[in-house]
Amino acid sequence: MNFSEETKDSIRRFAREQAGRHLSSAELSYFEQLGRKSGQTKEKLLKQMAKFKLTSDQTMEARDDLTLYMSDYVADLMEQGHTEKEALRLAKQALASDSQSDQAADLQDKYMRYYLDRDPAVDETIGLYYAGFLMLGLVLGIVGGIFLALYVFPDRFWPSLIFTSLLGVLAGLACGMLKHASTVSKK
């Protein structure tokens, strides 16, 4: 069935607006990931660029799909006796993807997949890294504090010890966080 240019334009515009919403946000977030990983090597950067290109292709493909699907639907409605304008209005109403129930179902799906994919061994490993780094930091802090108190501030033993111990704990916590981030991103 042939549509007027106005209807074709309207379908194309609708597909451009709505196609991205039908894809999950996870598939559109590679640009953000690219930004976060800016410190990585050129090879890794190129891989991310390839992923971004893929995402872009997916969005284009989704637009084409929605355009065709909507055209079929409009043609079907016209065959049922609706005017072109009315058919277009009904199709837009039916195919808009911004309803709260769609978003809720999508979110539920994402959370379910997230929890199903979680591996208890990874959580245990992360916990052990935190504990290990904290203990290491504390020990190094205490040792550093003793040296500082003995050779630099002999009249302020306890303040020096407490200060360096706190620094050690903080450094351990920071290392734990970095390892946590690295483990999660590898997973």
Binding site: H22, L23, A62, L66, Y69, Y73, A91, Q93, A94, L95, A96, S97, D102, D109
Partner: peptide, 10 residues
Amino acid sequence: EGTVYTVLVR
């Protein structure tokens, strides 16, 4: 009509 497309994407 409205939901089949979403299911197909999934």
